[in-house]
């Protein structure tokens, strides 16, 4: 017993049940997906070979990646300025802003998606108003195309971008900025050389969070894309439910998973991921 506890920290015993649960309920199904991708409809790498054979699959993956990158850039940029404003305004305003942010965070994605149709649709509020005051003759096509998908996704993702940034900005030691000003740096210099680098972990965390969540978007592209913006999640769902090509679906899921893991690995080359996820930088 003593020799055992010398090698294995007793803390492991306490978390062992949780570990077993995670492995059984989480890794199990994932392995099943990976297995399905090389066994359905027949054993081998036929599903993966399809990626090379069909332009369509590549195009769907590329559409997904492109939309996710654009969404991430806009959400994180907007999120950064919102978080910055929240940290630097009075407590009272900050509470209002936080309430508004959380309310939109909690509203169902369907409601938020359809409200964009009401606002920016062909006969929506904005087009209607612009037409009535004579600014435009034909409605502007905001919705039912890629632009519509981007608007909907950025809007949905902003709270996810703000929250990690807010945490990171709040934990900064403001005396560092004071010191920088004291030593003669301008406000802009202080921001670019002190503030931004210090909030980098928060920035990376929110970028990762937004990008990874965007990869799985299903409802927004399906509704706001007018059927023409096909992203991986919707394609996987069609393969599962309609065309019964479960192997193709599993292959795409495996590719997505590998892509996300690869991204985390690349990130980990440049920085300590533990700081991003709230751990201490050592």
């Amino acid at each position: 017993m003593h020799t055992l506890s010398r090698h294995i920290h007793p803390g492991w015993l306490i978390i062992a049940p949780l570990l077993v649960l995670v492995v059984a309920l989480y890794l199990g199904p994932i392995l099943n997906i990976l297995w399905l991708s090389v066994t359905d409809p027949e054993p081998g790498f036929g599903n993966y070979a399809k990626l090379g054979e069909s332009d369509a699959l590549i195009r769907i993956v590329w559409t997904t990646v492109r939309i996710c990158i654009i969404t991430t850039v806009f959400s994180v940029t907007l999120g950064y300025s919102i978080a910055y404003a929240m940290v630097h305004c009075h407590q009272r305003q900050k509470n209002y802003m936080l309430t508004l942010l959380l309310v939109s965070f909690w509203i169902s994605i369907l409601v938020r998606t359809f409200s964009w149709l009401m606002l920016l649709g062909r006969k929506g509020l904005v087009n209607g108003t612009l037409e009535n005051i004579g600014l435009i003759a034909e409605p502007i096509a905001f919705m039912r195309n890629e632009l519509g998908v981007l608007i909907g996704m950025v809007h949905y993702m902003i709270p996810y971008a703000v929250l990690p940034l807010l945490v990171s900005m709040q934990s900064l030691d403001t005396r560092v900025m004071d010191a920088s000003r004291n030593l003669g740096a301008s406000g802009t210099q202080t921001f670019w050389r002190i503030y931004l680098p210090l909030t980098l972990p928060g920035l990376v965390a929110s970028t990762l969070l937004v990008f990874i969540l965007s990869l799985g978007f299903y409802v927004t592209p399906a509704v706001l894309g007018g059927g023409k913006v096909l992203m991986v999640a919707e394609y996987i769902s069609v393969q599962l439910l309609v065309t019964l090509k479960w192997g193709t679906a599993a292959m795409l899921a495996a590719i997505m998973l590998a892509g996300v893991l690869a991204m985390l690995w690349v990130m980990s080359r440049f920085m300590k991921l533990s700081t991003v996820f709230g751990g201490a930088a050592r």
Partner: peptide, 14 residues
């Protein structure tokens, strides 16, 4: 042929 037809159609419109 439905499965292949649906995929071909989706690929054509997206």
């Amino acid at each position: 042929n439905g499965g292949d037809a649906v995929n071909a159609f989706l690929e054509a419109i997206s």
